[in-house]
């Protein structure tokens, strides 16, 4: 063995180890989800076999047909619609409130205002169960129980602080001088926000929308308590009911899970650049 061969061999070993690690990581990340997908295609008889066959001999998209067109999928389709409406509505409201709030915090910082920011963040720490009941009674009094609008309003309470936080980070990065030019031309604060700051921080706005939709799509406890019928039940509630209702058809449960996961997954992958930017917005500044 020559002296030159040792480092080369070590480098080769490092490369091999790197790829072994990469494959293991990929498998760990993918395996559970892939199994969920396979389960949604395989006939029940294959799923409950022992020893389990990992690649089912027969696969079909029948369950997806059931979910989208069949009678058993009726409640699920309503839930899909409700989830989309709640997420869209809640994110829109929170985005407007969050943009104005973030702009104020970014442009006129003061001790009192940053206190407000922390106060808003503190609401994020409140466990939903702590406000569930009074909220329930309020919603019922104003007739917003079991309604998409009511649920969306509730969601704005945790989306707004979160979006404000993200947007403030983006607004801080835009030099104020850029706005001054606009204001000299007679634009108001709101005008310069709309015409100057927003276009420049478009990535921030996209990030905020992305987070709003993902968080609203994910929420479970409020939806569980505040909705009761197909008029307002969201996907997480419908999915949790799948487990008691279709305990016998694991495949249908899996198909429902896949369909419920697709919208946020597609959004997140399509906009992954913004997702990561949003995640790091708060942390890098420390």
């Amino acid at each position: 063995m020559t002296r030159a061969a040792a480092p080369r061999r070590r480098r080769l070993l490092a490369a091999v180890l790197t790829y072994v690690g990469a494959v293991l990581l990929a498998a760990f990340l993918l395996a559970p989800f892939v199994w969920l997908f396979i389960s949604s295609l395989a006939p029940l008889a294959d799923l409950i076999q022992r020893p389990l066959q990992w690649i089912p001999p027969h696969a079909s998209f029948d369950r997806y047909r059931t979910i989208f067109f069949g009678a058993d999928g009726r409640d699920f389709r309503f839930a899909l619609r409700n989830s989309a409406e709640v997420a869209g509505l809640a994110t829109s409201i929170s985005l407007v409130a969050g943009m104005l709030g973030a702009y104020a915090l970014s442009r006129f910082p003061s001790r009192g205002r940053s206190g407000l920011l922390y106060l808003m963040l503190a609401t994020y720490m409140t466990p939903p169960v702590a406000i569930l009941l009074p909220l329930y009674l309020i919603l019922s009094r104003v007739g917003l129980l079991n309604s998409v609008l009511g649920l969306a309003l509730v969601y704005t309470s945790f989306l707004t602080p979160f979006l404000t936080w993200i947007l403030k980070g983006f607004f801080d990065a835009i030099p104020e001088e850029l706005e001054e030019a606009a204001r000299i031309d007679g634009a108001s604060r709101v005008g310069s926000l709309v015409r100057v700051v927003l276009p420049l921080s478009l990535p921030g706005v996209i990030t905020a929308v992305l987070f709003g939709v993902i968080l609203a799509w994910d929420e479970f406890l409020y939806a569980l308590i505040f909705t009761s019928s197909t008029a307002a039940k969201t996907l997480p509630v419908a999915i949790s009911e799948f487990t008691s209702r279709f305990a016998v058809d694991y495949g249908l449960m899996a198909a429902g899970g896949i369909v419920a996961a697709l919208p946020p997954l597609i959004l997140a992958f399509a906009l992954q650049r913004y997702l990561i930017a949003g995640l790091t917005a708060g942390s890098v500044k420390g």
Binding site: A97, L100, G101, A104, T123, T126, L132, P134, T156, S157
Partner: peptide, 20 residues
């Protein structure tokens, strides 16, 4: 400009929180 955000948060979280 902070008003909308504060209204949302105080209205939906503040009162129920104190009530609890």
């Amino acid at each position: 400009m902070l008003l909308p955000a504060l209204t949302v948060v105080a209205g939906v979280v503040g009162y129920p929180f104190l009530r609890t």
